[in-house]
Computed example of a mutant assay.
Amino acid sequence: MIAIVDYGLGNVQAIANIYKRLDLPCTLARQASDLAPASHIVLPGVGAFDWAMSRLEQSGMRAALDDAVLQQQKPVLGICVGMQMLARRSDEGTAAGLGWIDAEVKRLDAGPADNPRQLPHMGWNDVKPQSKEGLFAGFDDLPRFYFLHSYYFAPNDPADRLAESDYGTPFACAVRHGHIHGVQFHPEKSHAWGIQLLKNFATL
């Protein structure tokens, strides 16, 4: 059973619809008890870092998530701001993150003043996996995913980098620390590539 954490932020129904089409059991977790039967957990997120952390704390699921991920070691996938929440902190705000991965979230470089890059980084971009296993199993060609963000996840351990993308400079767009995974892009908006990635996560 895949539990999609529904704390009021993220494209939870779009993710659920993909798993239903794949005939994989899933549920929307809106309270702590909904996480108990889950074998895998998806943590989506959109918007500002502090607001997302506040909404998660208010949901009453924070302690149950910490237990499920840190003690029971259930596989988890953070998506977009849900990925950023896996870090210790973010330049976007002052709230502490979940701290499940030793990382910080930093603002993308807008480039030189005379030729700035548009922020947020929005639209399709190539993703270069470090390995064709795990989340990226079965990708024969260079996958493309849909992005919408102004901040990026910077792991302190290079071994946690699972894939990179480039927006002026390279950045980690997917990470893995043991059973803890995160992707900066939106798989639920990324057509066949996103469907394959969500399917792969369910088999980890």
Rank of each mutant, 00 (worst) to 15 (best):
201 F>L: 05
88 R>L: 15
152 Y>C: 03
3 A>R: 06
157 D>Q: 14
23 D>E: 15
77 L>W: 05
51 W>A: 14
106 K>G: 10
87 A>C: 11
10 G>E: 01
179 H>Y: 05
160 D>M: 09
180 I>V: 07
50 D>L: 10
197 L>D: 14
50 D>N: 11
108 L>R: 10
28 L>G: 09
14 A>N: 03
84 Q>R: 01
145 F>N: 07
70 L>K: 13
90 S>C: 03
142 L>E: 15
75 P>L: 03
177 H>Q: 11
136 F>N: 05
10 G>H: 02
191 H>E: 06
53 M>F: 01
4 I>W: 02
3 A>C: 00
71 Q>I: 13
118 Q>D: 12
192 A>K: 09
90 S>G: 12
187 P>F: 04
175 V>Y: 01
170 P>M: 01
27 T>W: 03
38 A>T: 06
139 F>V: 05
25 P>S: 11
195 I>H: 14
36 A>I: 15
79 I>S: 05
128 K>E: 14
106 K>R: 14
185 F>A: 00
45 G>H: 03
72 Q>D: 09
118 Q>C: 07
183 V>E: 14
98 L>F: 00
109 D>F: 00
154 A>L: 12
75 P>E: 07
179 H>Q: 15
151 Y>P: 10
200 N>R: 02
18 I>S: 02
28 L>A: 11
47 G>D: 05
46 V>D: 10
37 P>I: 01
174 A>L: 01
171 F>P: 01
5 V>E: 04
99 G>E: 12
177 H>T: 07
168 G>Q: 03
130 Q>V: 14
126 D>I: 04
146 Y>W: 09
3 A>V: 10
44 P>S: 06
69 V>W: 01
8 G>F: 00
153 F>S: 13
179 H>P: 14
48 A>D: 10
123 G>R: 12
115 N>W: 11
131 S>N: 14
134 G>L: 09
78 G>K: 00
166 D>S: 14
191 H>L: 02
44 P>Q: 04
108 L>S: 04
150 S>E: 05
179 H>D: 07
86 L>C: 08
128 K>Y: 15
81 V>R: 09
89 R>A: 08
136 F>W: 06
75 P>H: 04
112 P>Q: 11
156 N>W: 03
142 L>V: 15
193 W>N: 15
81 V>L: 02
1 M>E: 13
157 D>W: 03
146 Y>T: 15
110 A>H: 09
82 G>M: 00
32 A>F: 09
192 A>I: 13
26 C>Y: 00
73 Q>G: 02
53 M>R: 13
165 S>Y: 01
111 G>T: 07
174 A>D: 08
19 Y>T: 01
43 L>G: 02
176 R>V: 07
65 L>V: 11
108 L>H: 06
149 H>Q: 06
60 G>V: 13
32 A>T: 11
119 L>T: 08
32 A>M: 08
19 Y>V: 10
39 S>P: 15
29 A>F: 00
138 G>M: 03
174 A>V: 04
107 R>I: 08
141 D>N: 11
204 L>G: 14
91 D>S: 12
91 D>K: 09
39 S>K: 06
121 H>R: 05
190 S>N: 06
144 R>A: 09
204 L>I: 10
133 E>R: 15
136 F>M: 05
23 D>V: 06
186 H>C: 12
178 G>D: 04
37 P>C: 07
199 K>V: 13
81 V>I: 03
47 G>W: 01
81 V>A: 00
199 K>Q: 13
